[in-house]
Each structure stands twice: as C-alpha cells, then as structure tokens.
Simulated assay, not measured.
Amino acid sequence: MVLEQLHRAGMRKDQIRFLWALGSHGAYDMIAARKKLGDGIVENYAVYNHDPFQNTVRVGRTPTGVELWFNREFMACDLKIGIGCITAHVHVGFGGGAKLILPGVAGIETINQFHNQQFRDFSRTGLGNFDNNIMRTECDAAGDMAGMNFKVDCLVNRRGEIASLYAGPFRATHARGAEDGKVHYGIPYRTGYDIVVSNAYGKANESAIALSFLVMLLKTGAQGTGVLIADSPEGQVPHYVFRAWGSDYGGRHFAARGKGFIPLLMKRLIVLNPAPDRTFLDLVCDNGDAEVVKTWPEVLAMLEKEYPSDARVAVVPDGTVQYLMQPGA
C-alpha cells in the first residue's frame, strides 16, 4: 500500500530505498530481508542495513543534551516514512513511534547517551509505562529533529499478525497505539506463584526480556521456580550496547551477571532452549545459575519432581511483548 501510493505520486523505483532501523542490533542478511519484505521488494528496490559506527550525520541535541547523529542515507531523503510495530518495551513503555529513529537509525554514541537517560528516573521508564516516560520524550524530540514525515504502526497478536493498524504523524500513531496496547498486551496483576513459565516468543532472540515476568510473578523471597523458553536457533541478537563481546566485557551498558545472581531472585531457573550456546544467557545470568534443557518433556519431569502435588502456576504466552499491569488497572 505504501509503495503503491508513492508510485501513484510519480516516484520511481530508484528514488525509493528501504533501511533497517536496527539501532545497535546486528545487521540483517538478505534471507531475513526476503522474509520481511518479500522477493519483489528485495529484487527491485535498494535495501540497506543501518551502520551505527560510521556514515552518520549530526542533527543537533535533544533538550536534555543527547547528541543526535543519524544515518546519512536516511537524512539525505526528502520524504521519511517509518513502518514498525507497537509492543510493550522495557525502556520507552511501548515501542513504536519515533523509537524507529532513536535508537533505530542513530549512531552508537547517540544510542549510548539515549540509554543513559534511564538512570535519571527509573520510575518514569519501564514496560507499559508510557505516559510521562522520559525515554519516550527523547525519542519524540529525535523524531522531530530528524524530520520523520509519516509513520505506520501496528499492534500484533500472538501469531505475529497485525491486530490493529495506525497511520499518520508519529506522535499520534504512537499515542493511540500505546493506549490500545495497554489493554491488548496487558496481563492483570497477580503474584505469588510457585511456578512461572515465560515464553520469549515474539522476540525469541531477545529472551532476556521475558525474565522480568519470572521475577514479578513468582513468590517473594526467592521461593519459586521460573521457566524461561528461549527457542531461537539463530541465537540471541548481537547487541553492541548491552551484550558481552568478550570473556568479561561488552557494550557500554553490559553488566556481567556473577554466579549467585539468580538465587537472589528465585529458587530455581530452568531454561528451555533446543539450540543452546555458551553465551546466550549473558543478559540473564551466569551459566552456572541456570539449568538448560532442550525439550519440554525434560522441563515437565523436573517440575513434577519438584512439585509432586499441587502448585500455583502462571504461563505467560509472550514475555517479550506483554507487560504486567499495575494493581487496580
């Protein structure tokens, strides 16, 4: 539909390009591009990865002082259209809107400075915390300064299909989609479970996000058992800001999880991963703190042995896009 309208307005194929707004995540290959865009687009239009380490241009600063450097190709375009989705997000409350710009097409130092903003006031960030969110404010300022002209956003269901669609100015699509998303992605507030199963489905290669549900829903006092499902054969996404890039170091915001971290949060952590590797838990815990298995029957056997009779159980269908609503919401 977007391409149809652009061509109807007189634009040629060589005037249109696609740019993956991956921020500090690893680059896409063309297999991923064909899955996302289809063969027709990949074979007829230029498709570029974003490189946060070079070929960026300075645009200015946000009101709080974040230095804004953006993708050179993006900034050279006369018409800037963003296409993305809105899901609950650990920093900006709900993704979507101008998050496609910051950190999406930003330079690495800009991205680092952006993530520093969470330390100003943690109470004004977090999953589902959209209103008065200090990090969303940074995104909005960046969207204005970058000159994003039009935004298409959507909510997705548990099968990854479009459930609601929004199009227009980025602030409007983000606000409306986030308001609907509070109900669409929200899980009623309950706690005190013996067992919590949190599935990293929509963002399987960012499974650490789903860990938060284990912490929030389990019994307090590190009593319960958490099960994290991380079925991502390609591994966890490379992240130049948060993930490890060596034996004891990583990106600017990498925080090594020493052994003994998980026992402070729960009695036991079981991770279901059919294709594990030695670094996939670097955002979660030390490898010695988790019991990694490859099949669901193995998980069930461990749980049945630990809880031979009754147990209070919560299952989170997608711990990477949903969020726990506040009490009384």
Rank of each mutant, 00 (worst) to 15 (best):
T173K: 01
M148S: 06
A98I: 07
G260P: 11
R136A: 10
A314V: 01
K305L: 14
I31Q: 14
E304A: 15
E304L: 14
V57A: 08
A255V: 13
A200M: 09
A88R: 03
H184W: 15
V292A: 05
R176Q: 15
Q54I: 00
K99T: 07
T137R: 06
R159A: 11
L264C: 11
Y193L: 02
N273C: 15
D29C: 01
E291V: 10
R34Y: 01
R312G: 02
V59G: 02
L214F: 07
K35V: 13
V105T: 11
R61L: 06
D29A: 01
R278S: 15
A46K: 09
Q118L: 10
F94S: 08
T320E: 13
F70I: 13
G288H: 08
G168A: 08
L265H: 02
A46C: 02
D144M: 13
G143T: 10
M145S: 04
D310R: 10
V299Y: 02
Y323G: 06
L214R: 01
S198A: 14
L324N: 12
T220S: 12
G26F: 08
P274N: 11
G258E: 14
L269W: 09
R158P: 00
A210C: 09
V215H: 10
Y249D: 09
Y193Q: 06
S123Y: 01
N157H: 01
N112K: 13
L272N: 07
P317M: 09
F170Y: 14
S309N: 12
D140A: 13
G104F: 03
P188R: 09
R252A: 15
V47K: 02
L217G: 05
P238W: 04
D144Y: 11
K13D: 15
M135D: 04
I229T: 11
H89P: 13
G168F: 12
L19Y: 07
R171K: 08
I101N: 07
A76N: 15
F18C: 01
A172Q: 06
I81M: 05
A204Y: 12
G250E: 07
N205H: 10
A32H: 08
V47H: 06
E179Y: 03
I41V: 15
Y166S: 04
E43Q: 12
V57L: 11
C85N: 12
L303Q: 04
G10F: 09
A32Y: 06
K203M: 14
I16W: 03
D51A: 00
N149Q: 05
L269Q: 04
R257M: 11
T220P: 00
G104T: 10
G143P: 04
M266W: 06
I41W: 09
K267T: 11
S309A: 12
A141S: 14
V183C: 01
Y193H: 09
A275K: 06
D121Q: 03
C285F: 01
C154R: 00
R171V: 05
D144F: 13
G288A: 05
A175D: 05
R312C: 08
K99H: 12
G40E: 13
M1H: 01
K259F: 13
A141T: 08
L217F: 06
Q54F: 00
V293L: 02
L79P: 00
V197F: 10
S24F: 02
D140M: 14
G84S: 13
M30W: 03
